[in-house]
């Protein structure tokens, strides 16, 4: 019985109650592939842009036609992993989660504005409010970059928009994107549990509790409902006690278990 969203192995306490295990599955293989290939294309796109745009790099690298070609095609290919990802139900489900704002997401945003960082102040489901806005914004920004990029690539595609205007928007948005992407990477490495979550697809229960408490609650509830003979109402969970016999596996906080 491994179908519990987010679990790899059945985890039963001796009492017979199901619990979400210590390692929680956060992203499927398809989702990680989408992320990895999008990230790689984005890296190519940004690196080639830097070689075209920044004087010292341009002098070092030269080969303008080659770099332009790399930039154009990595840019054009950028949405492809996303489109292929739509074939995956896991990916589509996560897109729905990213799209919808729960009431507690507003609380998260307020806390972020006031620089409050405790778990209590920052409730979040599988994705927090910042990730939701980031996802929508960067999707729009990539589309604008593609559109203005195509206008520069195929001169005279839309004669009503001058190439200079397209370049103006492309250049400014490029800097905004670089800033936002830097923030995305910084966030990914702020907590050592975050980047491995995307790399391996698994996060520890402790990490999930810290960053996405409502998601853990949701998984726990599903686990209970899936367990045979589950009580109608969820029993209050015993306090976390890593030392208690038989509970280590389910409550150990961030124990690395490859």
């Amino acid at each position: 019985m491994t179908s519990t969203a987010g679990s790899t192995e059945p985890t039963r306490t001796p009492a017979g109650r199901a619990e979400v295990p210590d390692r929680i599955r956060r992203f499927s293989r398809a989702e990680r592939l989408v992320h990895r290939s999008t990230g790689l294309l984005m890296l190519l796109c940004v690196a080639s842009a830097a070689c075209l745009y920044l004087g010292p790099l341009a002098q070092l690298v030269g080969r303008r036609y080659l770099v332009v070609t790399v930039h154009e095609w990595s840019g054009i290919a950028l949405p492809l992993p996303f489109l292929l990802g739509l074939l995956s139900p896991d990916f589509r489900a996560d897109l729905r989660r990213l799209n919808r704002f729960a009431p507690y997401d507003r609380q998260w945003l307020r806390a972020a504005r006031r620089r409050l960082n405790s778990v209590r102040d920052r409730p979040a489901g599988k994705f927090n409010a910042g990730q939701k806005i980031y996802a929508g914004w960067i999707a729009g920004a990539v589309l604008v970059m593609m559109f203005t990029g195509l206008l520069m690539w195929f001169m005279g595609l839309l004669p009503s928009i001058s190439r200079t205007s397209a370049i103006f928007v492309h250049d400014f948005l490029a800097w905004a994107l670089v800033g936002v992407l830097a923030g995305h990477v910084r966030k990914a490495y702020q907590d050592p549990g975050t980047a491995p979550g995307m790399r391996t697809g698994f996060v520890s229960r402790g990490w999930a509790k810290r960053h996405h408490p409502r998601w853990v609650d949701e998984l726990d509830e599903l686990a209970r409902l899936d367990a045979p003979g589950a009580p109608a109402a969820p029993a209050p969970r015993p306090p976390s006690d890593p030392g208690a016999p038989g509970r280590r596996d389910t409550f150990g906080d961030a124990q690395p278990r490859a």
């Binding site: 914004w137 559109f147 001058s162």
Partner: peptide, 26 residues
């Protein structure tokens, strides 16, 4: 999930901003 589609709004907002930027670029 339920709730307002804020992700979609962020996307459309950015598209609108891009269009406005192109119009106002000169």
């Amino acid at each position: 999930p339920e709730g307002p589609p804020v992700g979609r709004r962020a996307l459309l907002g950015m598209l609108g901003l891009g269009a406005a930027g192109l119009a106002a670029a000169p």
